[in-house]
Each structure stands twice: as structure tokens, then as C-alpha cells.
Amino acid sequence: MTETVEGLSINLATVRQQWGFAEAVEGCLRHGIHAIAPWRDQIAAIGLDQAARIVREEGLQVTGLCRGGFFPASDAAGRRAAIDDNRRAVEEAAALRADCLVLVVGGLPAGSRDIAGARAMVVEGIAAVLPDAVAAGVPLAIEPLHPMYAADRACVNTLSQALDICDALDPPQTGALGVALDVYHCWWDPELEAQALRAGPKRLMAHHICDWLVPTRDMLTDRGMMGDGVIDLPAIRRMVEAGGFSGPQEVEIFSAEHWWKKPGDEVLATCVERFRTVC
């Protein structure tokens, strides 16, 4: 029997080009990995009931479901549709017993230059979904994205901004609303350590790892394997743990020209080796 790799989760985007959900789970188990974070399209492809059955039968920890969010829209109908989709995402996360639903909040509506307005729509959207998440027992984790994504993917770009939203919507820190800290998006932030401590154990809900390559050939699909870039992963791990996070580190790598072209088992074996030696 393969030894369990404690403290490691695999975001299934890391092997999305090699495997579907069931095959990815089988691969993780072959390598002793018992924590995963699937994406909603991967769940839809196999069916929610079947995915939930696999999670239960294999005793998997689902460290997060990716993703909800994308709240801003150019009209009220679009904003309502986004809220409805997020409510469905909450239901899916509950069925999978996910530790959290990760929110990539969305950028500017088409044709807009009003980033403050987009951020206001984000707050309104999260506020609308939060009661459903509380009722389902699914924490919402806002994931701030690197500023290069502010226009199209996420107008919340620092841990401080994300925590300000948490404080506004959940001031008692009930555990219903928090943050997902992805090193790819936050490693550059001079306030990262202070904000991780500010977040504390009730707000820190996920810790995603990979590396930043120099040069980066594509903003979205050229993330590096841990140890291949410039991020000080042990330092950020210390910050996150000092803030009270004790869950698995979740490897999330989008790599169209490298890791997505490798056999899935090679990718997972490398994730395990780098987790043990680099992180």
C-alpha cells in the first residue's frame, strides 16, 4: 500500500488535460494523495452524484471546489444569473463535503472601466449568496488574483481587499466567509505576512501552491512546478501557518506547454517530491 502523503492536496486543474475526475482520483490514490480540489466542469462531466459517491467511498478530503464568483455583469439580469449559478455551486460543494467554495470574483463587465463599481457588485453578490452558504454549511473563500487579472477575472487583487469584504459581510468571523491564499497571485505583496496574520484561523481557508516562472510565457497557463521559479514557498508557508492555517497545501498548476503534456503519474510524482523537498 502506498504511504499517505500527509498535508498535500491536488487541485485537479493540475492534471485536467490528462484525466477526468475518476481517473484523477485514481491517480492521486496511487501516489498516496487523499485530498483533492475539483473544478465544477470536471464534476459536471461525471455527474455530481457519481463524484460525491467516489469522494465518500474513497474517504477523500475535498479541500475546495473551484469555483464560484464572477459576480459583476452589465445588467441586473446578468447579476441575478451569476448569483443563481453561485447558489448551485454551493449545493455542489455541499454534496462533495468540500472544505470551502472558492470564489474567483470576476472583473469588469463588458465595456466598463468602472473597477470600483465592479468591486461593489462583488460585495453585493457575495452578500446575496452568503445566507445560502451558511444554510448549507459551505464556507466561501474569496481568492484574490494577481492584478494582471483585474479586468477580466478578479477585481479583488490583494489579501487585504478580500479581508475587507470578509469584515464587512461577516464581522463576527463565524467561519462562513474567508480567503483562499494562492501563492501565484499573492507572493509579490509586501503586506502578505501582515494580512495572513490578520486573517487568522477563521478566515484562512485554503493555501494554493505552485511557482512563478521567469520569464512567464502566458499569464494564465504557464505556472511553474514548486521549485522551478522565484517564489519563496517555505516563507509563505510559515506566514500561513503563523496565521493559523493547518490544512493541506493544494497544488494548482496550469501549464499548457509543459506539465499538461506530461503523463499524469509523472506530474503527481513530481508534485509529491517537490512538496517534500521544496515546500
Rank of each mutant, 00 (worst) to 15 (best):
L163Y: 06
A151K: 14
A13P: 00
A37T: 13
A151H: 13
L163M: 10
G224D: 06
V123A: 15
L65C: 01
G244P: 02
V90C: 02
S74I: 11
P248M: 07
D167K: 03
L159N: 05
D182Y: 06
D222H: 15
T221E: 11
I253S: 01
P201C: 07
D211R: 04
Q161V: 00
P38Y: 07
A94L: 05
A118Y: 08
V251M: 12
E193N: 11
L145A: 04
G27F: 05
P38N: 02
A162N: 10
L145V: 02
A176C: 04
D228W: 04
R87H: 11
A76R: 13
T216W: 00
P147M: 09
T4P: 07
A73C: 06
E273I: 03
V55E: 01
G125F: 11
R203K: 09
F254P: 00
Q195Y: 00
S74Q: 14
H31W: 09
M121G: 12
I231T: 05
I209T: 12
M148A: 14
E91N: 10
G111E: 05
A98R: 07
R67A: 14
G32H: 03
S160D: 13
A82P: 05
Q61V: 15
C166G: 03
R119T: 07
C100K: 08
A95C: 12
Q18K: 10
A194S: 13
R237C: 10
W187M: 04
D167L: 06
A98F: 05
R276E: 14
A180P: 00
A37R: 00
L60A: 01
V278Y: 11
D170L: 01
V62D: 00
G247Q: 10
T174E: 09
K262P: 00
V267I: 15
T14C: 11
E193A: 13
L197C: 05
R203V: 04
C279I: 13
R203T: 04
L204H: 07
H207E: 10
I115A: 12
Y149G: 09
H185P: 04
S255T: 12
I165L: 03
V5L: 01
D75R: 06
S112N: 07
M1F: 05
M239K: 05
A242S: 14
V230K: 01
D228A: 14
V123M: 11
Q195R: 14
D132T: 15
Q50F: 03
V105L: 04
T14V: 04
A168H: 11
W19M: 04
L192G: 00
V230Q: 10
L145S: 05
I236D: 12
L145Q: 14
P144Q: 07
I83P: 00
E91F: 02
G243Y: 11
L204Q: 11
V251G: 02
I253G: 08
D182V: 02
F245D: 06
R223E: 09
A81P: 09
V5R: 10
V15N: 03
L108R: 12
A73P: 05
D85F: 12
A24H: 08
D85A: 15
I83D: 04
N157F: 08
